[in-house]
Lab assay of single mutants.
Amino acid sequence: MKVTIEENEETGKFTIKVKTEDGEEKTIEIPKENLEEILAKLPPNVEII
Rank of each mutant, 00 (worst) to 15 (best):
Met1Ser: 07
Met1Asp: 06
Met1Glu: 03
Met1Thr: 11
Met1Pro: 07
Met1Gln: 04
Met1Trp: 15
Lys2Gln: 13
Lys2Gly: 03
Lys2Met: 13
Val3Cys: 07
Val3Ile: 11
Val3Thr: 01
Val3Arg: 00
Thr4Pro: 03
Ile5Val: 06
Ile5Arg: 02
Ile5Tyr: 02
Glu6Gln: 10
Glu6Thr: 13
Glu6Ser: 12
Glu7Tyr: 15
Glu7Cys: 14
Glu7Ser: 08
Asn8Met: 04
Asn8Asp: 09
Asn8Ile: 05
Asn8Val: 05
Asn8Arg: 02
Asn8Thr: 04
Glu9Tyr: 12
Glu9Leu: 14
Glu9Met: 14
Glu9His: 14
Glu10Met: 11
Glu10Ala: 13
Glu10His: 11
Thr11Gly: 08
Thr11Cys: 08
Thr11Phe: 05
Thr11Val: 04
Thr11Asn: 11
Thr11Arg: 05
Thr11Leu: 05
Thr11Met: 05
Thr11Glu: 09
Gly12Val: 01
Gly12Asn: 06
Lys13Pro: 01
Lys13Gly: 15
Lys13Ile: 14
Lys13Asn: 13
Phe14Ser: 03
Phe14Asn: 03
Phe14Trp: 10
Phe14Ile: 12
Phe14Val: 13
Thr15His: 06
Thr15Asp: 03
Thr15Glu: 05
Ile16Pro: 00
Ile16Asn: 00
Ile16Ala: 01
Ile16Val: 10
Lys17Gly: 04
Lys17Cys: 07
Val18Asn: 00
Val18Ala: 03
Val18Cys: 15
Val18Glu: 01
Val18Met: 08
Val18Arg: 00
Lys19Trp: 15
Lys19Asn: 09
Lys19Glu: 14
Lys19Arg: 12
Lys19Pro: 04
Thr20Cys: 14
Thr20Phe: 15
Thr20Glu: 08
Thr20Gly: 11
Glu21Met: 05
Glu21Val: 07
Glu21Leu: 05
Asp22Thr: 11
Asp22Leu: 10
Asp22Pro: 02
Gly23Val: 00
Gly23Arg: 01
Gly23Gln: 01
Gly23Asn: 04
Glu24Leu: 10
Glu24Arg: 08
Glu24Asn: 11
Glu24Ser: 12
Glu24Met: 11
Glu25Pro: 02
Lys26Cys: 15
Lys26Arg: 12
Lys26Thr: 14
Lys26Met: 14
Lys26Pro: 01
Lys26Ser: 12
Thr27Gln: 07
Thr27Leu: 09
Thr27Arg: 06
Ile28Gly: 02
Ile28Asp: 02
Ile28Lys: 02
Ile28Leu: 11
Ile28Glu: 04
Glu29Gln: 09
Glu29Asp: 05
Ile30Cys: 09
Ile30Leu: 06
Ile30Pro: 00
Ile30Met: 02
Pro31Cys: 06
Pro31Ser: 15
Pro31Leu: 12
Pro31Trp: 14
Pro31Asp: 15
Pro31Ile: 11
Lys32His: 08
Lys32Glu: 04
Lys32Gly: 11
Glu33Lys: 06
Glu33Trp: 11
Glu33Thr: 04
Asn34Ser: 08
Asn34Met: 15
Asn34Cys: 15
Leu35Pro: 00
Leu35Gly: 01
Leu35Phe: 05
Leu35Val: 05
Glu36Met: 10
Glu36Arg: 07
Glu36Ile: 12
Glu37Pro: 03
Glu37His: 10
Glu37Leu: 08
Ile38Lys: 00
Ile38Tyr: 15
Ile38Thr: 11
Ile38Leu: 15
Leu39Gln: 00
Leu39Thr: 02
Leu39Ile: 07
Leu39Trp: 01
Leu39Gly: 01
Ala40Trp: 04
Lys41Asn: 13
Lys41Leu: 14
Leu42Cys: 07
Leu42Lys: 01
Leu42Phe: 11
Leu42Glu: 02
Leu42Asp: 00
Leu42Val: 04
Leu42Ala: 00
Pro43Ser: 06
Pro43Lys: 03
Pro43Glu: 07
Pro43His: 08
Pro44Phe: 10
Pro44Ser: 07
Pro44Asn: 06
Asn45Trp: 15
Asn45Lys: 03
Asn45Phe: 09
Val46Lys: 05
Val46Glu: 02
Val46Thr: 08
Val46Gly: 03
Glu47Leu: 13
Glu47Thr: 13
Ile48Asp: 02
Ile48Thr: 02
Ile48Ala: 02
Ile48Asn: 02
Ile48Ser: 02
Ile48Tyr: 09
Ile48Gly: 03
Ile48Phe: 08
Ile49Ser: 05
